[in-house]
Design a protein around this nucleic acid. Structure first.
Lengths: 216, 216
DNA sequence: CCCCAGATGGATGAAATCTCTCCGCTTGCT
DNA sequence: AGCAAGCGGAGAGATTTCATCCATCTGGGG
């Protein structure tokens, strides 16, 4: 069905999705659709033809991001690096994909299941596994959970507020590197006290998903 | 002049500033003033009497945050801890003060100078000094600059998007602890490559300030 | 304890913004 | 070359936000 689209239409669709990622991550779920269209360099009508309403667009963005995520994962696996390096590559990819854009979309605005089945696999589960491998190999400190990875990546994928800051993306990648250094076992060894706050694992995300599902 | 205000008015003013911090950091500079008033538990008229326009409110928030920042700094200095611990306390305080709220406000919406003179001192300069002390004492890795501290704190002070996430604040503090571990020298020692991206020092911030000033 | 200047909240009209459709023109594909 | 699919932008209608006005209330000085 996608291949039956005219080439220019296909291209426009992709540009819309890309612009939507940027705008959603900057302004949240309620971002003006006009701006997304403008940023994509297409008319507003084009956006509406491709995605009949806001929800469809959010869903489209989520599927797009999640499947690119899965692709990134396969690339990382294929590269056969050690697990820490894999984690590093994956997190940088997630920042570039602006994964934070799907986060607000999860607020019951569309079904997570739909987006996941669209992507085919669940990146969160695969990340969980990768993190486990890195910890077993002694390359990542034992007291962090998958949430410590994902939620930081979500933060880093948003632009700094006020758009006064040039090189926003590069700054995020630099901060990610420092955070990654904080994930190493040596970093934990100098701690005086235990890591505070809510330790967020896989189960936590399931609880959130359930809560969202319950909103219907 | 502040003391000549009636007690309830004073209290309301503080509640408005506090609510404004939360809303600004969540929604950006263009947040609806109605919501700030509602969140503060006061009528919209009360907000307008205290701050005749949006700009005045932004300025008020900035002065409030910056002066609390200076106070936090004095508390840290008075505690006589080692410089790393000082940095730690200061960063946690900045997250709690929602310092990200003043960032978008810097986009030429009011004068930074005004806010700084309102606070009396420049927290950025003091932070710069504290960081230097920590590095000289060998407690913080040498390849980070003041921007690596401030810009992460700004990120951490914003709530995660979509407000699906409970315990938002606690998560930020936990992530800050991991980031702090990444700032230790031992964390840097395992690096294969140099820290990438733009190294952001004191001069960089001055350049931003100049650019904003030039917008007038 | 009384009194009123100063403080309060919410209604309100004007203005801005956003959503979504309609329609005449353009363009990729066979 | 023909035409079906695609396109952009205008604009009506709905919604949101701004900023003011005014009738009522109350803290605290005398």
């Amino acid at each position: 069905m996608a291949s039956r689209m005219r080439a220019d239409a296909q291209r426009n669709r992709e540009q819309i999705l890309c612009a939507a990622r940027d705008v959603l991550v900057a302004e949240g779920v309620d971002a003006a659709l006009d701006e997304i269209a403008r940023r994509a360099g297409v008319g507003i009508a084009t956006l509406y033809r491709r995605f009949p309403n806001r929800e469809a667009l959010l869903q489209g963005v989520a599927v797009d991001i999640l499947s690119r995520m899965v692709e990134a994962f396969d690339r990382v696996r294929a590269a056969q690096t050690d697990p820490f390096e894999g984690l590093r590559l994956f997190m940088h990819a997630a920042v570039d994909l602006r994964i934070g854009a799907i986060m607000p979309a999860l607020s019951g605005r569309f079904t997570v299941e739909g987006a996941l089945s669209g992507a085919g696999r669940d990146p969160l589960r695969e990340l969980q596994q990768l993190l486990g491998e890195a910890q077993e190999a002694g390359l990542v400190r034992g007291d962090v959970l998958v949430g410590d990875v994902t939620l930081m990546v979500i933060r880093l994928s948003r632009p700094l507020p006020g758009d006064v800051v040039p090189q926003d993306r590069d700054i995020a990648h630099r901060q990610l590197e420092i955070y990654l250094d904080g994930l190493r076992p040596a970093a934990a060894r100098e701690r005086a006290i235990r890591l505070p706050g809510p330790a967020i694992g896989f189960a936590w995300f399931n609880k959130i998903r359930e809560r969202i599902a319950a909103r219907d």
